[in-house]
Amino acid sequence: MSESREITLTVNGERHLIVVEPRRTLADVLRIDLGLTGTHVGCEHGICGACTVLMDDEPVRACLIFGVQADGSSVRTVEGLAVKGELTDLQQAFSRHHALQCGFCTPGFLMLAEGYLATTPAPDPVAVREMASANLCRCTGYQGIVDAIVEVAEHRFRQRPI
């Protein structure tokens, strides 16, 4: 029905019961209904990737999913990255490599990279660049973004439990 529906979303570990119109995108559910405005909306047609979040651990475009489709799923957003306020290794690497300027695309790149690194433990820089081409940044020229992800991938690979 085009009337609003009740959906259940687990976002950053918190379970939410939300009433949404079917046409409300997941990006708008996160931003407007849950106040998680770290997920940004840059194009609403799936090209820029500013709204990238992890849905059931996989990177997705939150502008191309309706909230009702996500009913029952688990979503992770940029707000869920830092643990007890401390920035993650990836977030710190982004700052060190000046991988962000205006910061608008940054949450999308962080979630894209987290989703990628979870399944690709030891990527080479060429693969990282290819993966990073999923999202658009208009400020940095991407070098810092690629460098930060490569560095973290290497570090995590060395630190992995054997």
Binding site: T37, G38, T39, E79, L87
Partner: peptide, 14 residues
């Protein structure tokens, strides 16, 4: 950087 990386930067629509 910190606020942008946390997703707590505040842009107009935020």
């Amino acid at each position: 950087d910190a606020r942008f990386l946390r997703g707590t930067g505040r842009y107009t629509d935020d």
